[in-house]
């Protein structure tokens, strides 16, 4: 591309993952950014897990029933709650990133983040209540 010196420092080589997730003394934006990546990776992982589990259906009723029983255990329900958190956070922060990333609401991004998070928290509480009561 252009003829510019690399910003890589050979004395202090930087691991890209550390660059993304090192939030020490960083502000809201980095936390949101790191959490978005974390939830994103989690959701991809979940998608594969989900497909694997659905494939149990192909192997007959017994296996599927055993899984449903496991899925009703409190520990599993807690994992459901974590999943829901991931979906809600990634989705709502995605709205913010999408908007801001196209140049809309840039100066209001902090307020936007917290507004969406309040909505997210309400959704999360409602979902968890449903998960544990139904």
């Amino acid at each position: 591309m252009q003829d510019v010196q690399s910003t890589q420092d050979t004395v202090r080589p930087k691991r890209p993952l550390l660059a993304w997730f090192d939030v020490r003394s960083r502000k809201l934006g980095s936390w949101a950014f790191a959490l978005n990546r974390l939830t994103g990776l989690g959701l991809v992982l979940y998608l594969f897990l989900h497909l694997v589990i659905l494939s149990l259906l192909l192997r007959g009723e017994a296996g599927w029933d055993a899984f449903i029983k496991l899925a009703r255990s409190p520990l599993f329900l807690l994992m459901d709650a974590v999943l829901i958190f991931g979906i809600i956070y990634h989705g709502l922060n995605g709205i913010r990133v999408g908007m801001v990333g196209l140049g809309y609401g840039v100066r209001a991004q902090r307020g936007l983040f917290w507004t969406l998070m309040v909505i997210g928290a309400a959704l999360l509480v409602a979902s968890i209540w449903l998960v544990f009561t139904i």
Binding site: K27, G29, S30, F33, V97, V100, G103, V106, R107, Q109
Partner: peptide, 22 residues
Amino acid sequence: HIAFECSEVCPSNVDPAAGIMN
């Protein structure tokens, strides 16, 4: 990736993140 750290640390009111988004 819209982390806004540039604008957080800017000591001279440039707000680079807003510039990039614009």
